[in-house]
Design a protein around this nucleic acid. Sequence first.
DNA 1: ATGAAAGCGCTAACAC
DNA 2: GTGTTAGCGCTTTCAT
Lengths: 343, 343
Amino acid sequence: MSEKAITVYDIAREAGVSPATVSRVLTNNARVSEEKRVRIEEIIKKYDFEPNGLARSLSKQETKTIGMMVPDIRNPYFSNIFIECEMVASQYGYNMILCNTMNDLSSELSHLKNLCEKHVDAIIQVGGNADEIRPDEEYVKLINKTAKKMPVVVGGEFPGAECYKVYTEKEHGMKELINYLLSCGHKKVNLVGGRNTVIPTVRKRESLKNCLKLHNLELADELIIDCKYDIDGGYAAMKQLLSSHNLPEVIIAVNDQVAMGILKACQEMKIKIPADISLVAYDDTSFSEIATPQLTSVNYNLKMHSEKMMKTIIDIISGSETEKVKSVDTYLTIRESCQNILV
Amino acid sequence: MSEKAITVYDIAREAGVSPATVSRVLTNNARVSEEKRVRIEEIIKKYDFEPNGLARSLSKQETKTIGMMVPDIRNPYFSNIFIECEMVASQYGYNMILCNTMNDLSSELSHLKNLCEKHVDAIIQVGGNADEIRPDEEYVKLINKTAKKMPVVVGGEFPGAECYKVYTEKEHGMKELINYLLSCGHKKVNLVGGRNTVIPTVRKRESLKNCLKLHNLELADELIIDCKYDIDGGYAAMKQLLSSHNLPEVIIAVNDQVAMGILKACQEMKIKIPADISLVAYDDTSFSEIATPQLTSVNYNLKMHSEKMMKTIIDIISGSETEKVKSVDTYLTIRESCQNILV
DNA sequence: ATGAAAGCGCTAACAC
DNA sequence: GTGTTAGCGCTTTCAT
């Protein structure tokens, strides 16, 4: 594809200095006489020389690359996190390798091994096994082994993983949500979506029960409905809900996608949101704004979540102390999908 | 962070062979006696040894990494392309470095330089300067310099770039679209969105004029409206359109986002799609299905587009001949956003 | 089949 | 300040 690339040796020869001196002006971390520095810089410019990053990485034992694993970057939740992380990364001179596991365990395993072999400077994982109540044992072992070699930070509770964690605290947002719903005159709530093997879902369910209890309200188990985390899941769940029960009063969807599915089902059934049913979502991704009506949604504070994860990495790499476990609060974004039935 | 990593030398010593032999079983491309192979493999397993990919890359002059540059991965158009590319990449043992340029030229430049220094095995760029009628000169120079060192494939026409190109042929989809609209009884079309400096937009405009001409129809220039490529852009353009003209008959939106904005504006103005106005979009991303009504949209065939880009790279790397320029056809996906006014 | 040795291209410790 | 030299950890001729 190309002629021989030019190296520090070539530059050194032409400048009449040693490769070490060239390296010194390249890394800029040792004094070089003004005269030689200028001479070397000119030759570098002349040939448009760029040092081989691979060789540098091998020598310095750092790649300036961070690996990130997510289930599916098409999900706005993950692409938002990625963007925020990448921004911080760029700031510190890092690139991101992005791996999509598509919720496939073997893919998760192989990507992790791969990032390891590539000697990325750190690994971030969001979703997948990091959110499982009972993560795959082999995977946990691999994470722990990896975490001994490099900074690993996960965006979830990840039971059993001995690495840095930044998880989302659901309590605050849920409290805001319940207060808001009560202030709108609602008392009966359905929680739609997810399954009991996924931590964020479990936390939402627990947290909802707790918050209701504070107001002496109960959440009957049959008001909690499992479904897949996507639009189809929400659609199917809602169809079922509409056929077998009398009309729900308020529905909390486990994420924006499920809410979109619920919305779709309602439209088909000529049910008006929020006039007939109030709807609240979780995630507050771009979907919340796109939807009609715009969704009231619990915001995950992804910017802060991402920044905390990246900050953790930067801290570890720079040798600063940093807490093993951090959390990020959620909060409520009120839009149009709930009705005040008191007025 | 960790104790000294184990190397081929350690394995070699313990197995009583030379590092070369260990390397031979690692790369599996030379015969090694069954006896030693087994012995070496056992020791590798015992220590869970994994060769340092950096060292391997430096030696073999290949990183098994592909760099991808897009404006913003949160845009489903790009995340879909990324996913499809990554799938092919994984199949061939490649990872992807993802760079978001956020439509910022200096970021585009620095990311490109960076990928170069990291010695990725190939670079894919979609959007950004690759879609500009008049790309930045410095950037074109850098692309051309880069293309001499490694395979560079862009997903656009990219004037001046001397690299591999896979662009989208707008003609076919537009023909299908016009035929469909005519069959629905429509003759007057507005084209909303984009600007004349962006190639795909220009091609759509040209192509629309051409297709109409085939049916002896004209597209008056005032029926073409510029606007930003996002939801806000579509929203603003539609508000303007609704205030200054009489009601449009059919609107073609330059992409799904703009269509979403148009939809939003219509809802606010109590204008029914498709009853009052028919709407067609471009991109056919997940937005098209999410929207209410679901959007009839011209599909870009992103899977094929991505596969052609990846195939180009694989071909070049494996030394096969491959065409410098390829194209992908578009086609129409009919959903609910157009009304047949003949019935 | 296998080992010795020379790279790959850079950085950093050491000596002057 | 600057050059010498020894890595970083793997692959790959070239002998044998």
